[in-house]
Design a protein around this nucleic acid. Structure first.
Length: 929
RNA sequence: GCGGGAAUCGCCAAGUCUGGUCAAAGGCGGUGGACUUAGAAUCCAUUCUCGUAGGAGUUCGGGAGUUCAAAUCUCCCUUCCCGCACCA
């Protein structure tokens, strides 16, 4: 008996895999094999090493990769590190660490831990963002975009995180807080670099239809891009010859516009109120609004505030003058920074109009009732017929949208257009540990791009980390640079790029990590790309996935590759949760520090346990390394894959890992220890064990293909338990061998180390990692086998059941009485009759015409009533009397062994027992004594 | 408010697309037993209710419906989770 020592085995195979380079792949441009690219999201190498989320992500990816590899794909499965980012810089500030050394140490730790899991990466392709050979290409992309005016510098209000001391992209602000540190985000007026992602808005939207992503993620992206069809309407400003060109989706309500609202920060406003009686109030109002952040201003709970500024515009249709207000809810960056307000048909405008006593004019009447201005308690936003709209009166409002827009176009006062919520991507960050933006400012030449041949602009080492300002500004060597245009002294841009730039194209570099002339070579990337399966967290649903799609399209337009979408299929894995003390009254979880308390600190309520996402602040994390140290990587993988389907949340339980461990240990001895009983002649048992083997292979193959890993694991567990029974009952060696080998192959993607070890122990050649996935034999998957399989299980269940009801411990004898011949004929006939009619009377009438059935009329009518009650419950397949008799003869010895008693098989007519009459086809009578 | 997802026998969770073989997999927990001086570990059995013969009854958030047949299909309601949120 060989014992199972996971620590030893796992180390041994990890070393062997590495020494033999078996996971290193090369592009096969002749395409002898199909390629497949599996990718996990580019991880940040944190100093804390792996957490459970990583373990889950990588386990899922590795199982799928190993499965695909065994199926014969040339598979690309790389790993690298998103190694730029704030923590390195904070470590430099707090602990005086060198960001580069600090990051390298973390990467090393992370890599070791990943190897400990047994992941089958091609490590020769490893990349990392802070490698100048990598970020050189960030800069290259930036310059290419600059050349095409896709990168530009602009002054605007931007989101500023005071804690990170840097600006943030819109996507990085969540409910008014910094996505990274949760500090309140402020608004600042700064000059920053943007990438023109808006230019691709339409394509980013369309592309979502070409990818196989969770609907949820697609919807989130669609919402973020926020396409809306509408019209631009030009409102002339009274006393000036310019117009304010506002966007609206409701051109049909134009005749009901009774005021305009401008954003207070709109530059025109300041000039309009200057030296008027409104100036003082405006200043006050402006200061007040500017103190609120964008999110407070647009919060639905906050009261709409505004003021009249003494200025008017002209409604281009009615030519009437309408007053201009400013309002806190209008944001300068959205649309024109001004809106036309139609209080009768927009709730927000309605409230504003009520507050400031602005007239309300109904221009749409609902189909089924009439609105009355004086009685209106809220706006009517639904459809209806136009009124008070001159030539458009009587038209349905949906039609009127186009009609009014067309008219505006004729008179040159507007046109139809499409608006997007998506803003351009702000990439400047006032931080050191990122990719420098390759720009030089020259007093004479202005903004000068660094020449391509001077790339990369490397991060300087002579910087000071004071915790104040951008450390790059402390490096004289870096800042001072000769203008490549005119040769005079210039200054470098000191902002670095958002780290999402690094992760926007890394998956291309994995395909060709050594490319020198270009970020990657077209033929190679066209071979490997796009990513067939991407696996990662839902938290990147918008930011990373949108940026990567944008880069893919830009790079395509630069001629770098030929496809439109980076990630064909996306799996967003669920969170890992763990039960944690929770106060139902205060609706909060206990923090890490109070985790040992029994009662809530605030209200004294007793804590209950509730499942919550693992997090450091709650202190309910479990360290994957400690699990692997205790049970081994295979058990950890097994648990995390078996605990829940990849997409759903996984409830961590220590007991669950215990089961994984138990299963693996049992499986080890089941597969390694030779069977104790062997026999030569084959029986129905052998056929059936092959049947369930093949059925299992089919199920598992389909489930792996769909990445329904948990389902696959369940299929395997069920087969394993049957196989174990078979082994204990006694086996035919050839069949045992076949099952063992195929089970091992199927287990391999999930628990790679132990399967390699057993593969070796049972003298198989080569690495199981490189073996072929087993196919299944369709011919065994018949209705007959299925029927027999159920027959065996049903008879055993029935015997057990009777045994329990009789409260019998030991059995003397089991008699199995097979139904008489006529019952089989009757049953077949009945089934065919039922196919034609469900009418009981008709069926009985037809049956009773048969002479051989006449003597059994009472029995038959009873059975028919039962069968008709639920037709589908009765199997469509039947054996004959003799076949069934033979079948039970075949499994007789097995039953004898199981119950340790005598077993006799009879046919009804040969038995004089009372019970014998109960026998039915597929359901023999059983008598236990 | 808008959008998405969910509610299953103590807990976690499959089953729902494609109705029938579903009292409903599997794990955890519980109970009984074997082993052991005892425990741990392991193994076996059992775990909706009733039943000394394989049966019957009541179940899949609540209500109504379709069907010979509903956890599964349709409609209504309740609750929970997660996105987005005065987007012009």
């Amino acid at each position: 008996m060989v014992s199972y020592d996971p620590q030893k085995i796992e180390k041994k195979w990890q070393q062997k895999w590495e020494a033999s380079n078996i996971f290193t792949v090369k592009e096969d441009l002749k395409k002898k094999k199909n390629k497949y690219y599996v990718l996990e999201m580019y991880p940040y190498p944190s100093g804390e090493g792996l957490h459970m989320g990583h373990l889950r992500n990588y386990s899922i990816g590795d199982v799928f990769t190993r499965f695909k590899r065994m199926c014969g794909y040339n598979i690309l499965y790389p790993m690298g590190y998103d190694s730029f980012g704030l923590p390195a810089e904070n470590a430099a500030i707090d602990q005086n660490a060198n960001p580069e050394e600090w990051t390298n140490a973390n990467m090393k730790l992370m890599k070791e831990q990943q190897k400990r899991i047994g992941l089958s990466y091609d490590w020769s392709r490893m990349i990392y963002s802070h490698d100048p050979n990598y970020y050189k290409w960030d800069q290259w992309f930036f310059l290419k975009m600059f050349d095409r005016s896709l990168a530009y510098r602009q002054e605007s209000y931007v989101n500023w995180c005071p804690s990170c001391a840097t600006v943030l992209a819109n996507e990085q602000v969540q409910s008014g807080q910094c996505w990274r540190c949760n500090s309140e985000v402020e608004q600042k007026f700064l000059t920053q670099w943007f990438l023109k992602i808006k230019d691709y808005a339409e394509e980013l939207l369309d592309g979502l239809n070409k990818v196989n992503w969770p609907e949820k993620v697609k919807i989130m992206q669609r919402n973020w891009i926020g396409r809306s069809e509408g019209s631009i309407i030009k409102f002339p400003i009274v006393g000036e010859d310019r117009t304010i060109d506002i966007f609206t989706t409701r051109a049909d309500t134009l005749f009901g516009a009774t005021f305009m609202v401008f954003a207070p920060e709109h530059p025109w406003v300041k000039t309009w109120v200057k030296s008027t009686k409104y100036e003082k109030d405006f200043e006050k109002f402006y200061d007040e609004v500017m103190r609120q952040d964008k999110f407070e201003r647009t919060d639905i709970e906050v009261i709409k505030k505004g003021m009249f500024i003494g200025k008017y515009t002209i409604n281009p249709m009615t030519k009437e003058e309408i007053p201009i207000y400013i309002g806190n809810f209008v944001i300068f960056e959205y649309g024109a920074g001004a809106v036309m307000a139609v209080p009768a048909h927009d709730q927000r405008d309605f409230e504003f109009a009520k507050e400031y006593h602005i007239p309300i004019r109904i221009v749409i009447q609902p189909f089924d009732y009439e609105l009355n201005v004086d009685k209106m308690m809220r706006s009517y936003e639904g459809d209806g017929i136009l009124v008070n709209s001159e030539e458009f009166n009587g038209i349905e409002n949906q039609t009127a949208m186009n009609a009014i827009t067309e008219k505006l176009e004729q008179i040159g006062m507007g046109f139809a257009t499409i608006n997007y919520k998506l803003r351009d991507w702000l990439i400047s960050r006032q931080r050191y540990w990122g990719c420098p933006i390759p720009i030089i400012y020259c007093d004479d030449c202005g903004i000068v791009p660094v020449p391509y041949e001077d790339l990369p602009v490397e991060l300087p080492k002579d910087v000071k980390f004071t915790g104040k300002g951008n450390p790059l500004q402390t490096s004289e060597n870096f800042i001072k640079v000769i203008c490549p245009n005119c040769g005079k002294q210039g200054m470098r841009e000191t902002d670095t790029m958002d780290t999402f730039v690094d992760s926007a194209w890394y998956f291309f570099r994995f395909m060709d990590p050594i490319s020198k002339e270009l970020p990657y070579r077209k033929d190679i990337v066209d071979y490997w790309g796009n990513v067939d399966q991407y696996i990662g967290g839902i938290e990147h649903a918008i930011m990373h996935l949108l940026y990567a799609r944008f880069f893919t399209k830009v790079a395509r337009d630069l001629g770098l590759h030929s496809f439109d979408e980076p990630f064909q299929r996306l799996l967003t894995q669920g969170m890992i949760n763990k039960a944690h003390p929770y106060c139902p009254k205060c609706n909060t979880f206990t923090m890490k520090t109070d985790v040992h308390d029994k009662k809530c600190k605030r209200c004294g309520t007793e804590y209950i346990l509730k499942s919550v996402k693992m997090s450091k602040s709650l202190g309910n994390t479990v360290d994957p390394l400690s699990i692997m140290d205790e049970y081994g990587a295979d058990a950890a993988r097994f648990f995390i894959l078996f605990g829940a389907s990849p997409e759903s949340g996984l409830e961590w339980s220590d007991e669950g890992v215990g089961f994984a461990n138990k299963f693996i240990k049992n499986t080890f001895s089941m597969l390694v220890d030779p069977p104790e009983i062997t026999r030569k002649e084959k029986t129905i048992r052998d056929t059936l064990v092959k049947y369930i083997l093949n059925k299992m292979i089919k199920l598992v193959t389909n489930n792996f293909e769909k990445i329904s890993i948990r389902d696959a694991v369940n299929n395997i567990i069920q087969f394993t338990s049957e196989f174990n029974k078979y082994k204990n009952e006694g086996v035919v060696e050839e069949i045992f061998e076949e099952c063992r080998e195929k089970l091992l192959l199927i287990l391999h993607p999930i628990i790679p180390h132990i399967t390699e070890e057993i593969w070796e122990i049972i003298d198989k050649k080569g690495f199981i990692s490189l073996a072929s996935w087993p196919s299944y034999n369709k011919e065994l998957l018949t209705l007959e086998n299925d029927f027999k399989w159920k027959l065996i299980n049903n008879i055993l269940d029935d015997i057990n059941n009777i045994k329990t009801v009789m409260r019998k411990e030991e059995l003397d004898k089991i008699s199995i009485i097979i139904a008489d011949e006529w019952k089989y004929r009757f049953y077949k006939l009945l089934l065919s009759l039922i196919n034609e009619t469900k009418n009981q009377g008709e069926i009985i009438k037809t049956l009773m015409q048969k002479d051989y059935l006449k003597p059994h009329s009472k029995f038959i009518s009873q059975i028919i009533t039962k069968v008709l009650k639920n037709v589908g419950k009765y199997p469509k397949f039947t054996l004959t009397t003799n076949e069934e008799y033979k079948f039970f003869q075949d499994i007789k010895s097995m039953i004898m062994k199981k119950y340790n008693c005598e077993v006799e098989i009879l046919i009804e007519k040969d038995s004089n027992a009372q019970k014998a009459i109960q026998s039915l086809p597929g359901k023999p009578a059983i008598i236990i004594t």
